[in-house]
Write a protein that binds this DNA or RNA. Sequence first.
DNA 1: ACCTGAACACCGTTCAAGT
DNA 2: ACCTGAACACCGTTCAAGT
Lengths: 231, 231
Amino acid sequence: MPPPPWRRGTDKPVRQQLGVPAIVAAAMRIMDREGLDAVSMRRVAQELGTGAASLYQHVRNKRELHELILDEVFRDLDVPEPDPTRWQQQLKDLCLDLTRIMLAHPGAAKIGMETLIPTTPGVLVGMDAMMGYMRVGGVPDHLIAKACDPLALMGTAFAYEASLWTTSAAGRAEAHRRIDEIEAYLDSLPHEQLPHLTALRKQIRDEDDGWANFELGIDIFIAGLATYATR
Amino acid sequence: MPPPPWRRGTDKPVRQQLGVPAIVAAAMRIMDREGLDAVSMRRVAQELGTGAASLYQHVRNKRELHELILDEVFRDLDVPEPDPTRWQQQLKDLCLDLTRIMLAHPGAAKIGMETLIPTTPGVLVGMDAMMGYMRVGGVPDHLIAKACDPLALMGTAFAYEASLWTTSAAGRAEAHRRIDEIEAYLDSLPHEQLPHLTALRKQIRDEDDGWANFELGIDIFIAGLATYATR
DNA sequence: ACCTGAACACCGTTCAAGT
DNA sequence: ACCTGAACACCGTTCAAGT
């Protein structure tokens, strides 16, 4: 039943006030439900019951909106004080934490890769802690400045790759189909031209756990870093 | 002047026959000139003087077209025989080569990141060689299977990041603007809350050479790998 | 068998017009 | 100051119709 005509107050659609926080919240809702590709200006506007043009009052463009999501995702990252006796473990934990956060919001990693030098408050705190761990570990300063980049990139890139197929049921099915195709393709190739790949295939197939591979990758990197440490 | 009416042969527009090779060639031309974002079905079709619908006779969808580009990019990668006395150097060279190839075709790295497990002939040869180097180096087999992933990902991710801003003059300008903004932002932050970042800032600014950072990242990773080697 | 135009359901962004 | 509808110039993909 429509409201009586004298209730003029409810004529206008009830809608929460537009503004950056509301926009980012809507965008994150869409991203977590439908993936980053669904986070278009039009779709976010629709979620807020308005038109795409309205968003441009609060956000410069789509890229800026995406970066605001990244801000939100990394907001709460807690970092323990550096402890010289276990700096390697602390460094590893931080890398894994950063990656876990991105995996919890599939799409965030893609924004991280697409953003030229992400510099949200949360990321800065993480970077500072990373440097702190390396310093108390005795890694020379000139190395620290260079080693942070690759280390952060490993986490982001891994989370990106993972989010390609972990997000949706369709993605998982697609991934399985793809793996089967690759298995068949490898079977069809001349084994003598790919001797090492052939020799290691069983190993690869049996132990193909993405997260374990990533964790080992971090371990290897930190072990390498330790060989440069002076303490 | 139009051709005389009896020259019926030239009435139809002269156009090279459509087909996968022509399509991929056109796509690569566009990618190298205008970046991956410009490689749309419509734009590639335009380049070939036809409509987008025609491409679907030869290519399943845009993703497949992009992967065909990756095939082409990695076609010629030459890999030296493994030499036990310098496997670490060989492994490093291979990683750098793979990355250089992607940097030579900005856009290729993005396809590599977006492709679930890229498996072109060229990539397979590269992977096999990578494993070969690790094997003659005495890295245990179960480690090799896991270490290839992160190593390849480091190169792809680095090339992707680099291609974000190295491609166009506009991109480079944008990157410079961004760096200046970040510098100003860091200045404005409470230094006591980011002590390590503050202490290392001069170092970071002075030595911020992306390629050098990447090379060092690979060095560190390989040094770490060597600590696991049994030979 | 191969190609095509038109259509469908989307995009990001701008801008004049409204309140 | 803030919002909006309409428009512009794009997308990927499908499909009936042509040769």
